[in-house]
Amino acid sequence: MTVTDTNSWTGIRTELLRRIHDRIWQPGERIPHEADLAEEFGCARTTVNRALRDLAESGLVVRKRRAGTRVALNPPQRATLTIPIIREEVEALGRKYRHSLLERDLRPLPPMLHGAFQVSLGADVLFLKTLHFADDRPYAFEERYINLEAAPTAREETFARISANEWLVHNAPYSHGDISLFALNADETLSRKLDTTPGTALFAIERITWAGGVPITHVRLIFAPGYRMRTEI
Rank of each mutant, 00 (worst) to 15 (best):
T69K: 09
R137S: 09
L55Y: 12
E142L: 03
L73E: 15
E89I: 03
R230Q: 06
V119C: 07
E15L: 13
A44V: 04
R230P: 00
A67L: 14
E157C: 05
V90S: 11
E157P: 00
N49W: 13
P76Q: 02
T82M: 11
E34L: 08
H170R: 15
A154E: 05
R220P: 00
L126P: 08
A51R: 07
D36E: 14
E40C: 01
R207Q: 09
D136P: 05
E39F: 08
L121T: 13
F127G: 12
R70S: 13
A151S: 15
A150C: 07
R30A: 12
P32I: 09
H176R: 15
P198G: 06
L128A: 10
V62G: 01
N185A: 12
R23V: 07
N49I: 02
P173T: 08
T47K: 06
V61Y: 11
P108C: 01
L168M: 08
L55I: 06
T47P: 01
R23F: 07
V169P: 01
N185H: 15
L16V: 03
S180F: 07
A160G: 06
L148A: 09
L16S: 01
D105P: 00
A164D: 09
L190F: 11
R53D: 09
T130E: 12
W210A: 01
Q118H: 09
M1C: 10
A172M: 03
G226H: 07
I222E: 00
M229T: 06
R144D: 01
V125S: 02
S8F: 11
T69A: 07
V3Q: 13
R230E: 03
E29N: 02
H218M: 02
V62F: 07
L148G: 11
F203Q: 06
L101N: 04
E143H: 05
R107E: 09
M112I: 15
H99M: 01
V169Y: 08
A150D: 06
D195E: 15
R107H: 08
L106C: 08
D105N: 13
A56I: 04
R144P: 02
I20Q: 03
S120L: 06
D54C: 06
F182M: 09
S100G: 03
I85Q: 12
P110R: 13
R66Q: 08
A211T: 05
E103S: 14
I31M: 14
L17T: 13
W167E: 03
F127D: 02
L131R: 06
R207H: 09
I222V: 15
R192I: 03
G177H: 12
T189N: 14
A204P: 11
A186N: 06
